[in-house]
């Protein structure tokens, strides 16, 4: 069976003459949380944009369940829920309407939508704000709307770009808890972050990006042995690897 998400030798970027991504390859399987780790400007968000189909790779292939975006846009998109780095909300829609229109667009049945939405509001403590407009939301509340919209869809693949920014402790906990539940149900999750302590605790595998290239990838043990740093934590390995890279 094909992995859920496959990225094969992708070169990409805004301009063909100045590629930002160089020969990126990795996979995200069903039932795993993969951390996409890198400094600011390492190419995390660009990689994510390519996966979402907002940018086209110059070379290489991106497949979800073995099929490319161009094979069938609708099927491709329906499998992915995206949590952006900065919350992107419709200023003219209330919280509840955000959830409703997202569920509509992805073809979630009305009954199912209502059940899931109520449960999410409860879990993320947003019941009171159900009919508020984004104007009255704090940064963290906005982020919660994006997270709830993603979980509402229960897709196969979650792509989360720095999901913790601005979240309160309860929000972070609910988010991570949900993610683990989704993973145990067989979903794949790709999460970019530079909060490495959290990543180390929750991700099953890691992909280190640096200057648009995959520096290393694997489980924590694999990374430790590749870096010849047994017992080291993710932070130390990452810092060491990027230092070496910049010495070259």
């Amino acid at each position: 069976m094909d992995p859920l998400l496959t990225i094969e030798h992708v070169n990409g970027g805004y301009q063909r003459t100045k590629p930002v991504l160089h020969d990126i390859s990795f996979t995200v399987g069903r039932g795993e949380i993969v951390g996409l780790i890198g400094l600011n400007g390492a190419g995390k968000s660009t990689t994510i944009k390519h996966i979402l189909g907002l940018m086209e790779p110059h070379e290489g292939k991106i497949k979800v369940s073995g099929r490319e975006l161009t094979d069938d846009i609708d099927t491709y998109r329906k499998q992915i829920a995206y949590i952006p780095e900065t919350p992107l909300l419709y200023e003219e829609l209330t919280l509840w309407e955000h959830l409703e229109v997202t569920a509509m667009a992805y073809g979630v049945e009305e009954k199912v939508f209502e059940e899931r939405a109520e449960a999410l509001l409860q879990q993320f403590r947003m019941k009171k704000m159900k009919h508020w407009f984004p104007d009255h939301f704090s940064k963290g509340m906005r982020q919660k709307v994006m997270i709830m919209s993603a979980f509402l869809l229960e897709p196969d693949l979650y792509i989360a770009d720095e999901p913790f920014v601005g979240l309160d402790p309860v929000g972070i906990k609910s988010f991570l808890q949900r993610m683990q539940e989704m993973r145990d149900d067989g979903c794949g999750i790709l999460m970019s972050t530079h909060i490495l302590a959290t990543a180390e605790k929750y991700c099953d595998r890691f992909i280190f990006l640096d200057q648009g290239r995959v520096l290393m990838q694997g489980t924590l043990e694999q990374l430790q042995s590749q870096a010849a740093m047994p017992g080291a934590d993710l932070d130390d390995i990452y810092v060491r690897m990027t230092e070496e890279d910049s010495h070259e």
Partner: peptide, 19 residues
């Protein structure tokens, strides 16, 4: 009505009236 085809109608209706 709640359906996939109507997602745009949903959004535009609210934009038209509120925004």
């Amino acid at each position: 009505p709640y359906s996939r085809e109507n997602a745009y109608r949903y959004l535009f209706g609210r934009a038209m009236i509120r925004s």
